[in-house]
């Protein structure tokens, strides 16, 4: 692409232009606050005592601090089981995703390979038409994947959108690199993993993040394919915490009821903390990685 600074407006502008800037910036800051405030509200409730929550409702800042919600959650074995399940699904699932997607994207980036058009069509068509929830469910069932963590990995092993992002990125890389390596006796596999991948960091990182977040947040496959509590991923656990009748949740239903909203919000915070921690590492790659996806190929 071109140089980064697209528009360098001269600093001196007419009064109208300056008024526009003020309004524009104010609106955008408001928008950012609206986007962010709900998280803050949850955080505040999660560190407030139930008493203060029930009496006045707490906003902006806790009126009476309490970490009971967190201490309850930390002692909850089900939370850690579901954390472990989600971690497995995210790590293994993303590895599977990336391996398959990278290989396919690289091959599909070769536009004069025989069969390229057919294979590309096979992939893109799935974005336009799908068999639906039930037929997919039957396939998963027939493969004996029901109630296995693999049911949350294999049926979403390739995301076609991500495949296209990577493929477009590979297609834009200079061909000379590969040709030189091929002449040196490197196989196609070697070219991909030793030469192409290291120079594709922005796109690969972005796609990795997309896959990982999808797995971490996956709720759909879980309600479709997972039954037993021991296999619950985090999102199912969280849902039962938040939305199921509190007393029905466990034997110690009473204490749950007493902990109430602050405890629920503590659970919410614990589900988003890993994402919030990973986010800054990935953020700088977003626009670079996506630019290649934005350009249709």
């Amino acid at each position: 692409m071109r140089t980064k600074t697209v528009k360098s407006h001269p600093v001196k502008h007419s009064a109208g232009s300056r008024i526009f800037d003020v309004i524009n910036i104010t609106l955008l800051i408001l928008l950012a606050l609206v986007a962010f405030y709900p998280f803050w509200d949850c955080l505040v409730v999660s560190v407030s005592s139930l008493k203060s929550y029930l009496s006045t409702g707490v906003h902006l800042w806790p009126s009476e601090w309490s970490f009971e919600g967190y201490s309850y959650m930390i002692k909850n074995i089900d939370l850690w089981i579901s954390y472990a399940n989600s971690l497995f699904i995210t790590v293994v699932g993303t590895l599977v995703n990336m391996l398959i997607t990278i290989m396919a994207a690289y091959v599909l980036s070769k536009k004069d390979l025989k069969g390229h058009r057919v294979l590309m069509f096979l992939a893109v068509f799935t974005m336009m038409f799908s068999g639906g929830i039930i037929p997919t469910y039957i396939v998963v069932k027939d493969l004996h994947l029901m109630n296995s963590l693999w049911s949350m990995i294999l049926p979403s092993a390739v995301n076609t959108y991500n495949l296209i992002v990577l493929r477009n990125f590979f297609a834009d890389l200079p061909a000379e690199l590969e040709e030189a390596a091929l002449l040196d006796g490197c196989t196609d596999v070697g070219v991909l993993f030793r030469i192409m991948l290291p120079i594709s960091k922005p796109a690969v990182t972005t796609v990795t993040l997309f896959y990982a977040v999808d797995h971490w947040n996956d709720f759909f496959s879980a309600i479709m394919y997972i039954n037993s509590r021991a296999k619950w991923p985090l999102q199912l656990f969280l849902r039962s915490m938040l939305f199921e009748n509190d007393a029905a949740y466990s034997g110690s239903g009473e204490s749950l009821f007493l902990l109430g909203q602050p405890m629920k919000m503590a659970a919410v915070m614990m589900a988003i903390i890993p994402i919030m921690c990973a986010y800054p590492f990935f953020q700088k790659y977003f626009s670079k990685g996506i630019t290649s996806g934005a350009v249709k190929g």
Binding site: L99, I100, T101, M103, A104, Y106, V107, L108, L119, L122, A123, T126, F129, S130, G131, G132, P135, T136, I138, V139, L143, L154, P155, S156, A157, V158, L163, D188, V189, L192
Partner: peptide
């Protein structure tokens, strides 16, 4: 290198179709 993706698309997209 295309085989795994192809297998995926057949099993989880085309068979359900």
């Amino acid at each position: 290198m295309l085989v795994p993706a192809l297998v995926y698309y057949i099993i989880f997209c085309y068979i359900p179709m």
